[in-house]
Design a protein around this nucleic acid. Sequence first.
DNA 1: GCAAATTAATGATTTATTCAAG
DNA 2: CTTGAATAAATCATTAATTTGC
Lengths: 180, 180
Amino acid sequence: MHGVRTYLLIFIVSKLQVQVPPTTTTVGGTTRWNPSPDQIRVLEMLYRGGMRTPNSFQIEQITEELGKYGRIEGKNVFYWFQNHKARERQKQKRAALLTLSTTTTASTLLPPAAETKEGVETKKEEACEDASSRKRRCRAWEDVVVHGGGDDAGTEVADDYYTDDDVTLELFPLRPDQGK
Amino acid sequence: MHGVRTYLLIFIVSKLQVQVPPTTTTVGGTTRWNPSPDQIRVLEMLYRGGMRTPNSFQIEQITEELGKYGRIEGKNVFYWFQNHKARERQKQKRAALLTLSTTTTASTLLPPAAETKEGVETKKEEACEDASSRKRRCRAWEDVVVHGGGDDAGTEVADDYYTDDDVTLELFPLRPDQGK
DNA sequence: GCAAATTAATGATTTATTCAAG
DNA sequence: CTTGAATAAATCATTAATTTGC
């Protein structure tokens, strides 16, 4: 045997006759998620705790937790972390730029014109400033696929990689229309 | 209640000890999807037909269709279209560049410097070549959300259930590890 | 002919950018 | 202006072509 491969597929098939009266924009109505303060609090707590890109299982759990404070979906959590991360990054980038231009401690010999020019250019080309742990965590889904792995001895399946089962949560945007 | 809201949640938690003999590299497959010629044929046919970013329902159907020719998942279809589109674009861009630099037929009065400059700029700003329906198709997921709907009929559902319904296929990559 | 070494394609993720609601 | 939502671009990683030396 090749070890226990567990996967979870969630299909949410919603059939609805959208007969929603456009007049009442009450509870269900809003188009996009509007996070409640409680939800934001929890999310920021998690973010400060170090969570940046939660996996599907974590998203599931977070969604469940935040569901106590209002309607929410997994994709909201997903997007929130993406946006928060990205905007934190660009905010820091901007701050670094500002620091560079205002700090007169180190390089006080640069003329302001040069600074401005560099700033504009940096906006385009200096993409990453972090550069510390630049490893990409790939190999996702790897065990979700039923593949006849090469280990026939069955000695070590390297299960220490995952603590629990492999959970695959498929999340696709649904576009209203597509076609040629 | 304004309409029939029916939700179907299918949890396929398959826990299987894959017993595939590792010698035969037949069906079980490998780590990453390797499309068969038949699958590629169908996909390219669809692409030539105008399909660029299929929605979840289409992805479902395509996956089902392509499943006849070999193992495949929804995310494979999704990624295939993304990659194919992107690489088609960059190939055309490159071709346009080449054409610009070699073609001396039409605009022979422009200095080569200007041509080069325009090419470089095009790389940045001319993202869409279609320009016809440039509307961003938002409002995705809109009906999928479980918002206060009375869902009682989640159990008895048939297979032909979602022929024309909203299908949400959630697809998330599972990362091996994420920060604490 | 045939593997090891290199290169080219391409599947899979992440990041940057853009659009639009509120 | 802020920010949720969506898409495009860049990047990584793996597999198929291919080259090369034997």
